[in-house]
Design a protein around this nucleic acid. Structure first.
Lengths: 330, 330
DNA sequence: GCATTTTTTGCAAACGTTTACTAATTATGA
DNA sequence: TCATAATTAGTAAACGTTTGCAAAAAATGC
């Protein structure tokens, strides 16, 4: 049997209320008795029962981190940021992978609610309006991360995707490339739509006109990048530079280019988006837009704890700045 | 105020014991009343309080996963394996990064103990005897993963590092390489010592003699691989093939080789160890020994739950098989 | 040294469940 | 129809804490 506060009380000849007070270092217990109690607790190998405490204090010091997939190289840094910061404030974090399935997301969230976590950091799969039900219906504090919630009343921390797209394109333009293409998700729904928007904004600003045949909508997969560029090259009509919707696409694109006997960036320059760890390796050296992943996680944890501890009631909307990382691919 | 079982009882005109029974689908409540209760609970938006339940049932349906660093590409797959399997059995998992610091490991473990997790999966930093205190002193079930515990009485799931080292070396030998080197951690303490042992065993078995100048002890860092190979090449004395203690080292080694104008595998063949996601990319195509990371996590979760639910009392010692993945570097 | 204030301690309720035990109800068999 | 068995529902204790309130003890002031 694990030792409880009552066992200690008995052995120390005090009431268990006194033990509770002594152990929690509150005022109002004589030093002498506190010392004795602490000694006894120590000797008996006491570990406070957080469950019992949670029940009365209605606080568990746990939070949930709900993300699509920790195996996606984007998320470990975010998770690390969350965990590091949470731990600093005494919170533990539940890791929940949704595997990009709405049903799993829902299930995880309701499990977390049963576990009475103090709050949730959610990197949602989609950003559909109904998703925001969570934050209002249940009353668990939620911070959205990575993607903005549809509703205006929720807090979030995201990166400025549009600015990222702008930065990437601007860089390419300033490098003197005249024909620039985009491969990646299009506006509809996905956040990468904003990356595309930023790209278009740069075209606009610098007076270039978009050549639609070099703008290819698709998904986020490496294969897509590979296939798309191979197609372009085989048709004999390709741009001098390409902005890819994310690093995985960029890597696929580079692979395709090389396989066709062309060189990067001499024949085609490529800039990616995200700066996953892979991008920095000497074999890759991808020029890309860095998302502040760790900081995003840290920030989200910070905001969540702030909300939990009631220090703020207004929703906070944080938009982090992207950073252009110039390496060798563009 | 969140709705409790008592609120439901009042509205449904039954005692709250009945509500509890109805909601937990136990036998012993008339269908009619159960339906009514379920309907009321539904209508009131009831979410069971896992904390209260945990207090009486002495089970929280949470487990802890304690690893060095989720940002290390080895661990996400392990974590995913743990989480997927745990979830299947209704358990949630706390993610704890120790950052390779013993003090953080200890702290996390004692926090988990306070949270009354049902068990812990631990990828320890070191494998020193005193570490095993955990499993015995506290009575939380523990499964060691990645590294074996020093004590004989603990359960673990690891990979057969020695066999991995053997496989890698054997492959190199069979490819016809006569001078083979090793760069990586040495025997002292680290599990990679076993990799080296397997390497030596292969030398033995195939009648080759070890040339100590090609066996370089060090750590697990990419820079070490890079520096070491550069040194060898500059001295003008290097082996035809190298077995690296892990993939990061291997990547550093390859980079060094290429930078010195030599080619892989034509001048020097390299095989790594781990098969981190990076190794499979077309830019890298590293020949390596795959650790069954996902399976390790899954297996650990399986064993832990088995232990929690008391289906087994004997410690289980699982040693997974490595697999040689032949790509282009060796 | 005694009344008064302040500090320390104890008692008991509360947190939201589950569950043994008992009471009430319904079903069964003759 | 009635005794008995089987089923359903209710009472109350328990899980291990925290905390308001009251009682006891110690400290203070005169």
């Amino acid at each position: 049997m694990t030792v409880t506060i009552k066992d200690i009380a008995k052995k120390a000849n005090v009431s268990y209320a006194t033990v509770s007070r002594a152990l929690n270092a509150k005022y109002g217990v004589r030093d002498e008795t506190r010392d004795k109690i602490v000694a006894v607790a120590q000797a008996m190998g006491y570990t406070p029962n957080g469950i019992a405490r949670g029940l009365v204090k209605k606080q568990t010091y746990s939070i949930g981190l709900v993300i699509p997939d920790i195996t996606n190289p984007f998320f470990p840094a975010v998770a690390r940021g969350v965990e590091d910061h949470a731990k600093q404030f005494g919170y533990s974090v539940f890791l929940c992978n949704t595997n990009y399935e709405k049903s799993r997301e829902d299930h995880h969230i309701s499990l977390l609610a049963e576990k009475r976590v103090d709050g949730i950091i959610l990197a949602p799969i989609l950003n559909e309006p109904q998703d925001d039900a969570l934050g209002t219906e249940s009353n668990v504090p939620v911070i959205y991360v990575t993607k903005r919630p549809a509703s205006e009343t929720q807090s979030f921390v995201v990166m400025d995707d549009e600015r990222g797209g702008f930065l990437a394109t601007k860089y390419l333009i300033e490098q003197g490339y005249k024909t620039i293409g985009y491969i990646g998700p299009s506006k509809t729904g996905h956040d990468a739509g904003e990356r595309l928007a930023g790209c278009e904004a740069a075209f606009d600003k610098f007076g270039l006109t978009i050549q639609p045949r070099f703008f290819r909508a698709g998904d986020f997969k490496r294969e897509t990048g590979y296939d798309t560029i191979i197609g372009m090259i085989e048709e004999g009509d390709y741009p001098r530079a390409i902005f890819a919707g994310n690093d995985l696409l960029a890597i696929g694109i580079i692979q395709g280019i090389k396989e066709k006997g062309l060189s990067v960036p001499d024949d085609i320059a490529v800039v990616g988006f995200d700066d996953i760890p892979f991008a920095a390796f000497p074999e890759v050296r991808l020029t890309t837009i860095r998302q502040p992943k760790y900081e995003m996680g840290k920030m989200a944890a910070d905001m969540l704890i702030e909300k939990i501890e009631g220090r703020t009631q207004q929703p906070r909307r944080v938009i982090l700045e992207p950073e252009l990382i110039v390496r060798s691919s563009g």
